[in-house]
Amino acid sequence: MNVAPILLSLQLAAWTALLMLPLGLFVGRALAWRGFRGKALVEAAVALPLVLPPTVLGYYLLVAFSPHSALGGAFEWLTGEVLAFSFPGLVTASMIFNLPFAVLPMQQAFAAIPHEVREAAWVSGLSGPATLARIELPIAWPGVLAAFVLTFTHTLGEFGVVLMVGGNIPSRTRTLSIAIYDRVQAFDMEAAGLLSAVLLAASLVATALVRALAGRAVRV
């Protein structure tokens, strides 16, 4: 079995999940507690990848990644490489595609902490960062971990967006699900079956983990 697509997908999933962790924390917490102008719009934007066809999102990302656009141009100027059809491009696309998976579980977990509990921490002398580290995260960690696991697994199996912005370049952008598609196209059903089994097992473990985490939430 060609393990390169598996390794590439694991790398992509790890980078995406790790980078989304602080972002999800920041956005999830803000959406859980703060009221601000345009909040509904931000929430809609975060949830958009759930309903938007991956090809549509992929198309817009491809346009944004082109060297003629601001983002793609800046990336090329900085690194000398093209963002589209590159691994950093895949990571960027994955991050956007995974926004709802990274943000929503954390938003829910933080929203479940009564505001009074945070205020009690402040009145007890704990600073904002200390309150996050010693009160909020120890209460909300199942949601944070669920977000990480969901983002990781979702990235492992990503297809449409990856194909649109990454193409199918061996060892660079050919991820697990693209390799499966590629093998089926070549009538190599055995290899497709093996790779599919890997993805199935990973997804099953992830969903079981997320279910288990939901049961671990601290009663507030």
């Binding site: 009564p114 009074e116 509990v117 205020e119 009690a120 209460i139 009663r219």
Partner: peptide, 11 residues
């Protein structure tokens, strides 16, 4: 400050 519903740290 003693909150009405105590606001203890549940964990």
């Amino acid at each position: 400050l003693v909150f009405q519903h105590y606001a203890l740290f549940p964990h």
